[in-house]
Design a protein around this nucleic acid. Sequence first.
DNA 1: TAGATTGTTAATCGATTAACAATC
DNA 2: TAGATTGTTAATCGATTAACAATC
Lengths: 208, 208
Amino acid sequence: MALCISDPAVKRLPMYYRYLKEIEKKGIDSISSADLGKLTGLTASQVRQDINIYGGKGRQGYGYPVIELRKHIEHLLGVDHPHTMMVVGMGSLGCAIVRCASFKKKGFVTVAAFDNDEKRIGISLDELTIQNVDELARFLKSERVDIAVLSTPADVVQELAERIYRCGVRGFWNYAPIDLQLPEDAAVVNVHLDESLEVLTYRLNHLD
Amino acid sequence: MALCISDPAVKRLPMYYRYLKEIEKKGIDSISSADLGKLTGLTASQVRQDINIYGGKGRQGYGYPVIELRKHIEHLLGVDHPHTMMVVGMGSLGCAIVRCASFKKKGFVTVAAFDNDEKRIGISLDELTIQNVDELARFLKSERVDIAVLSTPADVVQELAERIYRCGVRGFWNYAPIDLQLPEDAAVVNVHLDESLEVLTYRLNHLD
DNA sequence: TAGATTGTTAATCGATTAACAATC
DNA sequence: TAGATTGTTAATCGATTAACAATC
């Protein structure tokens, strides 16, 4: 795909997707940039620029066809086809992610869960059994995994991620409080929940 | 505080804070903007601009004093004093947040947990007992809560947040997949884990 | 047709980067 | 002192907004 979307515009993509699904559910079949702007908190101009960059098409005097645009963005995001995930680090956060029903609904299938703690290995969650992290490379030889979810302590996650990368996984959703360093051909999102909370305390302490 | 920090600069604050703590732990007592830039992936120029805006002070020919700058940013973020939190919606994600030890270490004390499901009310997690969400207003009459963590289904969270706001809480850390609408004098951070995952699939599907 | 609204270009705004004098 | 590095101003870059002709 030749079209290149700037990072700020990519980050708005999921928001458009969310609102479009809402609008679609209401049975509305077209929406103007002005109305979509009101919903998302953006200017109509920005909405039009974005949709143009995304390659979406509207009709003058009418607006954007909701279903068509939703499908278009769905395809851009890549969520029109399922992804397999594995979770490494089965603390309470790792377990919460495995259990999270909304991801399943959206086509994210967790195919394995790993930990290095003997007390956790063998425990079942939903249809999964927690495996020893030493089995990881062997598992990845036979199973395709699109996304590794990392919810281990920070001090082991970089080395772990490199190991997983070498097994061919290219998507990394990192919950450990560091910035993963991986080769260019890997897609990494660092979640940094702690930093999100610190942004909140900043705002809370500077309200006035 | 008169100084106004732009949103992009506020969002970099926790990252500086994280790296400064790391550097401090290594026993290094001064760092140049060039070296801090290398760590954070920013230009030295940006680092200096940021620190200036934050009100931090360095010394020519020497760099920035690590401990002093760390403390300064800690104060700006407001994490130099403890915050109380309550969690509403005790699904697996809500439980994971209550259990998350790293928040405790950073001065975030969870003082209550609520749910509306009879099966969950009365269950104990750590030192907390899950209370009926109907008790929420009564609880807030006697206890001060800085931050409400919302991990309920999306369809109830807006109304719930408004109710909590009316009880005087001003910090909202929202995990439900909607954008909370609250008055100006509330500090809201919408986490949107699902959207973070969609940004990952976008990048994964557009690697080449 | 007239009204509405897109698609797109130009103008503006704000954030990042470069440059360099000040100074430790 | 000489070298290093900040603090700060100016230049650049990119993203957002405004404007308006095209057209449904």
